[in-house]
Computed example of a mutant assay.
Amino acid sequence: MTRTIKLNELTEVLDTATYPLPVASARSTFDDVELVYADGSESLPAVLGRVGDDQFESVDDAQSSILNVVPVEGVGEPGQSEGEG
């Protein structure tokens, strides 16, 4: 069964693991997690495949690394505007 989560719920999911956590282990630990973006979704293991780290030292480290590789188009709410410049 797939767990579907929004990006703002990522910390709660990552907090269920024991750190330090090798990225390879994170891919299998979170193989049932689907991240919901503003414009679609993607599996967490696919996102982890783009992370350049070998190991996460903490929840904050994991979240930071993941958010750095999430597509820019995926962040934000649907229909959200950058505003008038």
Rank of each mutant, 00 (worst) to 15 (best):
M1K: 15
M1S: 11
M1P: 13
T2C: 03
T2R: 06
T2P: 07
T4I: 11
T4Q: 10
T4M: 09
I5N: 06
I5Q: 08
K6V: 02
K6W: 05
L7H: 09
L7Q: 14
N8I: 02
E9M: 05
E9D: 13
L10P: 03
L10K: 01
T11Y: 15
T11I: 14
T11G: 04
T11M: 13
E12R: 07
E12F: 07
L14Y: 13
L14M: 06
L14C: 08
D15T: 05
A17E: 03
A17C: 01
A17S: 06
T18L: 02
Y19A: 00
Y19H: 04
P20G: 05
L21Y: 09
P22L: 03
V23D: 10
V23G: 08
V23F: 13
A24R: 10
S25T: 03
R27P: 11
S28M: 08
T29D: 06
F30I: 00
F30C: 00
F30S: 01
F30G: 00
D31G: 01
D31I: 05
D31L: 02
D31A: 04
V33I: 10
V33L: 03
V33D: 15
E34W: 08
L35Y: 12
L35E: 02
L35F: 08
L35R: 06
V36S: 08
V36H: 10
V36W: 05
Y37G: 13
Y37A: 03
Y37R: 15
A38G: 12
A38N: 13
G40K: 12
G40P: 11
G40S: 02
G40Q: 10
S41T: 10
S41M: 03
S43L: 09
L44A: 00
L44C: 04
P45E: 01
A46E: 14
A46N: 12
V47C: 00
L48A: 05
L48H: 10
G49S: 04
G49M: 01
G49F: 08
G49W: 14
R50C: 10
R50Q: 12
V51A: 02
G52Y: 06
D53K: 14
D53Y: 14
D53S: 09
D54L: 03
Q55N: 08
F56A: 00
E57M: 06
E57Q: 14
S58C: 03
V59Y: 13
D61M: 01
A62R: 05
Q63A: 10
Q63P: 11
S64Q: 15
S64T: 07
S65I: 02
S65M: 04
S65R: 14
I66F: 00
L67G: 13
L67W: 07
N68E: 13
N68K: 07
V69A: 06
V69C: 15
V70E: 02
V70M: 01
E73C: 05
E73D: 11
G74A: 07
V75R: 15
G76H: 11
G76C: 14
G76S: 08
Q80D: 09
S81V: 12
S81M: 11
E82S: 14
G83V: 00
G83Y: 10
E84A: 13
